[in-house]
Simulated scan of single mutants.
Amino acid sequence: MAASHPSGSPDANDQPWWLVVLVLIALALAGVIIANDLYTQVFSTVIKGLGVTVFVTMAGFTLATALGLMIALMGLSRHGVLRQIARFYTEVIRGIPILVLLFYIAFVGAPALVALVNLVIAPLVAQGLMEPMQVRDLSLMWRAILALMIGYSAFIAEVFRAGILAVDAGQIEAAKALGLTGAQRFRLVVFPQALRTILPPLGNDFVAMVKDSSLVSVLGVADITQMGKVYASGSFRFFETYSIVAYIYLILTIGLSLVLRRLEKRLRLGRGDGR
Rank of each mutant, 00 (worst) to 15 (best):
R78N: 14
R187S: 12
A177L: 05
V92N: 08
R78E: 13
I34Q: 13
S139Y: 10
D14N: 13
M58C: 15
I244F: 08
F107R: 02
G75F: 06
A157C: 02
F160S: 11
K265L: 08
N13K: 08
F55W: 04
L146D: 00
P97H: 08
A122G: 04
D137C: 03
I34S: 10
L146R: 04
R196K: 06
R271G: 15
Y39C: 00
V120G: 06
I33Y: 03
M130P: 05
M209H: 06
V189M: 06
W17A: 06
D168C: 01
M74A: 15
L116E: 02
A28Y: 10
P97M: 14
A162W: 03
A232T: 09
P200T: 01
W17C: 09
I96R: 07
I105R: 05
V20K: 15
L267C: 02
I224A: 06
L73P: 02
G203P: 11
R78T: 15
A194H: 09
Q193I: 07
G203N: 06
L63R: 00
D11E: 09
R268Y: 04
F236N: 11
V210G: 03
A66K: 01
Q15W: 14
V46M: 07
I150Q: 02
V21P: 01
M70E: 04
A147D: 09
V20E: 04
E264G: 09
S77Q: 12
Q226T: 05
V218N: 03
V52Q: 12
L24H: 01
A126Q: 11
P192I: 02
S153K: 04
M130A: 14
I121V: 12
A86S: 15
V135K: 05
V32Y: 04
L50W: 14
V230P: 10
L219H: 00
V221I: 12
R161E: 10
I105P: 09
V46E: 08
T53D: 13
I33W: 03
K48E: 15
I145S: 00
G60Q: 02
L69W: 00
D11K: 05
N13V: 04
T45A: 13
A169K: 15
I251K: 00
P97D: 07
E264P: 08
L256V: 11
T197H: 07
Y231F: 15
V190G: 10
V190M: 14
L50S: 14
I71K: 09
V54E: 04
L188H: 14
G234P: 08
A246R: 04
A194T: 07
